[in-house]
Design a protein around this nucleic acid. Structure first.
Lengths: 237, 237
DNA sequence: GAAATAGTGTCTATCAGACATTATGAT
DNA sequence: ATCATAATGTCTGATAGACACTATTTC
């Protein structure tokens, strides 16, 4: 094979940024300012630069495009999209997609690349037409988030450093849809070694004060929590 | 930002090709013929060409570099490696990595890109120095395979169309290391709807003939099989 | 019959889910 | 006292793991 056959590609980092707002799962969408697909809703993202990894590009675009700081989020690679027709531009563009989880992220500030930047409820966003193949990336990202809640402790990434058991349960309910039985959830979470640890404090509100927890050292949950136990879940799509 | 800052990259598809030989998990390694890292052991792979997706490049390289046909394997995306220093060449090279599972794959034929191409037991390969960041990719791929056996039915990708329960169990034992209790494994597999279905035939050997099964329609296994049950497993690394 | 392998039955400890009960605060 | 929320207790059915046992073939 001759070297001339090798494709050279631009590398875009596309982010599925998820957070909870009013106990509902939201995703960050921007309306594109750039010429290609201008005006369409899209996932935030941008091109990897010289001397930068795709992960660094992701963090930079989070900051520049929607005003989110690296320390406020957990970023994980989702997958890479390389179909030839996924981008209409003459240059070949491949997309490295990431999931980004954050706690109580603020309203978005639309920067240079975006006409608007807003939080959209995930159920609504999944029904919107999006630029490029972002519809599919979003669906993959949401499914990944749902799945990761089962066997990892990433749910805590949606919460502040200190949180109540009820708040943790609301994360699961928002991401999975439906409701979980509080008593069983409580017992299950505490039975997993290193999932959460007590801070010793409690939070006062209406009703009995709730103990506060922080994330423990465990990365994975065994045995996993299971989506089978959600009641009134939205039907499988 | 000026367009000139955008990196253009070569896209390599790197494959962690796994198969069972003598009930032991093996990975395909080549010894590099190309100038860069010449003579070093590496994962098979090659550059995405114009008009081709990374997936198509993976299938093409499987055929060209190690003589494996697309219909004989199951290919899944692993993750993408984009660190700046991962490749010493002046051109920027990012790697899209894939896991490839196949049944009784034949001895490898070293083609143009390779001085040699051989099956290496995974435990041995994990201890070898490999070119580029292939050591890490291999470790990620093996861990992904172990994990996927828990909650998907991909184990059947390591077997012919028709297989016995004992053969399926040997797949799990080889990939996970250690041994599984035959009776419980049998009962568990049959209890998962759509994991396997009987063909009606049986295979004669020493001892009582074994019923033959083929893969069912299920993609995922719920509840999952669990590595917690392996006895005499190799210690966690 | 002995050996080898496949497949079934059974016991027990554990655990998930349902739901009742108790605890502790605010008003 | 009442309400609201948090947390614990209890019951039951399902299941995983251990292991004994039966079945069917070859030699």
């Amino acid at each position: 094979m001759s070297d001339a056959d090798r494709e050279v590609a631009l590398v875009a980092s596309d982010m599925v940024v998820l957070t909870l707002r009013d106990d509902e799962l939201h995703v960050a969408l921007i309306r594109r300012a750039a010429a290609t697909e201008r005006g369409k809703w899209a996932l935030p993202g941008g091109f990897m630069r010289r001397g930068e990894s795709a992960e660094q590009a992701a963090y930079r675009e989070l900051r520049e495009e929607v005003g989110i700081a690296e320390r406020d989020v957990v970023l994980e690679q989702l997958r890479t999209y390389t179909e030839v027709e996924r981008d209409p531009r003459p240059e070949r563009v491949i997309g490295v997609a990431w999931t980004v989880f954050g706690a109580r992220l603020p309203d978005l500030e639309a920067a240079s690349d975006a006409l608007e930047a807003v939080w959209v409820p995930v159920d609504e966003a999944l029904g919107m037409p999006l630029a490029f193949d972002h519809q599919r990336i979003l669906a993959d990202g949401v499914e990944r988030a749902r799945s990761k809640l089962e066997y990892t402790s990433v749910a805590t990434a949606f919460l502040d450093d200190e949180f109540t058991m009820s708040q943790l349960r609301h994360v699961y309910q928002a991401v999975w849809g439906g409701s979980l039985e509080p008593a069983n959830f409580h017992r299950k979470v505490l039975s997993v070694d290193g999932f959460v640890e007590e801070t010793g404090d409690s939070r006062v509100g209406r009703g009995r004060p709730a103990k506060l927890y922080r994330r423990g050292s465990a990365q994975t949950i065994y045995p996993p929590l299971t989506r089978a136990s959600v009641r009134g879940a939205r039907p499988r799509s």
